[in-house]
Each structure stands twice: as C-alpha cells, then as structure tokens.
Write a protein that binds this DNA or RNA. Sequence first.
DNA 1: CTAATAATTGATCAATCAATCTAAAATAGA
DNA 2: TCTATTTTAGATTGATTGATCAATTATTAG
Lengths: 194, 194
Amino acid sequence: MARPREFDRDTALKRAIEVFSAHGFEGTSTPMLLEAMKIGRQSLYDTFGDKRSLYLESLSRYSEESTSGTISRLFSEPSVAKGLRRSLYGFIDEAMADPARACLGVHSVAEFGTSSAEVNAINAAMGDKTRRAVEARLREGLERGEIARWVEPATGGGFFMATLVGLKIAARGGAGADDLRRIADLALRALVVE
Amino acid sequence: MARPREFDRDTALKRAIEVFSAHGFEGTSTPMLLEAMKIGRQSLYDTFGDKRSLYLESLSRYSEESTSGTISRLFSEPSVAKGLRRSLYGFIDEAMADPARACLGVHSVAEFGTSSAEVNAINAAMGDKTRRAVEARLREGLERGEIARWVEPATGGGFFMATLVGLKIAARGGAGADDLRRIADLALRALVVE
DNA sequence: CTAATAATTGATCAATCAATCTAAAATAGA
DNA sequence: TCTATTTTAGATTGATTGATCAATTATTAG
C-alpha cells in the first residue's frame, strides 16, 4: 500500500561511495551527492538520514567490501607467500582501476584522525579483521617455514596494513602499476623466507 | 614610512600549518584560521593571499621541513642501515609528538589526489628529493654490502616512502610508538642484509 | 473506485562559506 | 607636527552550506 522507490538503494550508496572517496567528507557537498546518486534531495534524507549518516554507511560498506576482498585473496592460495602477494596485487589492481578514487578508509583516517568515535569504530573493526587474518596466515607460514623466523605475527599484521596504506597513497599520488608491484614484492621480502 | 606588522609572518604560517594538518583544506574555515593564527581577516588576505594560497604555502613549508629532517637523519649515521632506521624513528617521534596533527603531505594527497597541479608539484618535488636521497644511501649500502642484493635503489626509495606513509597513517589512527617502531624495524628487513 | 501510504518535487530556511570594501589606527619620514 | 603609507578592525557582500517544509504524484490494499 505504498509507492515504490524509483531508485535502487544499493546503487545509490555505491555512487555515494565514489563521491566520498574522491573528495572526502568535507569536500563533498549535498548537491554533488544528489547529482552523482541521481536522486532527489528529500529522497536522500529520507533514505539515508543526514550527510554524516550517509558518509558513515558509505565508509562502512566500502571497508567491508575492501576488507573481504583483501582477506579472500589472502587465503586464495595454498602458499602463504603467494597469498600475501596476491592480496597486495589485488589491492593494487583495485587502486589502479579508478585512480581518481582514493581509498575511503585511508581518506577517513587522514580527515578525522581519531576525533570521530564512529569513524574510529568502523576503521578499528575492519583493521582488526584484516590484521587477524594476516596474523593467522603468518602463523601458518611460520610453522611451515615459509615465513621468516624474525616475524612476530602481530607486528607482521601491522606492517602488512601499513604497506597497503602506503601503496594506496602512492597510487593516488600517481604511481604506476608496475612500480607498485615492485614495491609490494620488496615489502614481502621482510616477511617471506627466500 | 609605514606601519609595522603586529604579528610575525612565520609564526602565523606555523599556526596555519597546524590547523590545515588537523582538518585538511576543505575542513578548515577562514574563521578557524584567523583564531589559530591570531590575526585579523584582512591581514590574512593582505599577507598570504586567499585561502588556497595560504594552504599551498603551508604545504610547501611543511613538506620542506619534514623532508629536510628526514634526509638529514638519513645521513646522520655512517652506517646506512642505522641511518635508515634513524630516519624512520625520527619520523615516528614527530608523528607521536602531536597525534592530532596529521601529516599535511599525506593528507593533501588523500584530499586532492592528482587533481591539483600545484599540490602535485609540491608533493612531487619533495617526494623526489626524499627518494633520491634514499636511493643514494641505498647505493652506498649496496657497495658496502649493508643493503641486500635484491634491492633496486629506485624501488627501495619508493618502498621507503610508502613505509613512511603507512607509519604516518597508523600513527594518526592511534597506534603506539612501540608498535610503530616494531613495524619500522620489520620494514628494514626488506632492505638491510642481516 | 476510493482511501491510505509513501516517494517525489520545488520552495525555502538560517547559518556559514570565502572574500571584499570602507574607515579607523598607527607608524615612518619630512 | 604633519603627511604619506600601511596595517588593522568592523561591516557586509553574494554564494553556498546542510537541512526542512509543504505540496504534488504515484502506488497498492480494500
């Protein structure tokens, strides 16, 4: 007994992610969102709440997808070393797919630091998830002798995430895919036994 | 034959850097700048031009100081490995000194990507400077057998910078100094011969 | 066909944005 | 002391910000 929505909530959210990724929270205006999402102003407020709510949902969705992709690639190979590399390479491919689009997660940290509790909660949750997955594979690799003995899994997880961030910013700064892959390969030297 | 300025240009600029570092370009309003810089509105426009000019000068100044600090630490030790570590550690100390203050350089890349020619020119210049310095030390280390044979200097430079970025974002995200140092040590394993 | 419900459109809100203009205040040289 | 010159301070600009209200349109259940 109601009029159906003329737009698809999910595709609208996807478009919002694009805009926020490219321009950040402060750099994105509601008219920009409306044009990109192709919905009316009232539809935005009715469906997603205010701008901040939409941003948090965008960040949450983006982080979940990015995280799950990274983790699934991480476990996609029997070899731990190959899994790590595939994960980094996949991240690079994603980053190069749309150079104008930054990593919303990285951007959110740069913009908000630790000042926003909600942003922090999302990033902490996704960060922990990735870190734990990396740690698990590192422990597996340590047992199997694939990972160097000097690697503490917790530190290795942190290093892996720092590498992801560094690659993303390098990509956003204009680095090429081959440069990024060489950097990723070098980073793996810190973890993988030769 | 003129009235002298009541404020110091340099300290005002320093304060502007603080504000831009914490909130980015879009997140910083002119009233915020005026309050932090402790100058009047007209003084800002007379002395620094518009908001964008002030931002570019802030970014330029910050990048120069940060870069020169990183490079001087890089060459502060006879040992290449120790120089690299000292450089990373110094970067960590700076980042931890004021957790609320992000790296303006990293933040600018996240905000503008490659869309702003001026921002890009500044970042490219400072990035190249750092990268070349790292490459020089890596070559020195390669000759002396301190740096692992697999390290291409150009890639090593890119990796070093990616590590700096990763550390900065990790710090901004709330990581502790000891965590960061462990990550830095691990990163060095990719470069230094054991 | 009608009534109830929900989504859309357009007008509009106060607040804030960056930036400019004007006029008062203060210093230097003559 | 007087005047030229520059820096301040205050008022104000039009544009844009995020957000809400009222009215219209469309759809489905009964």
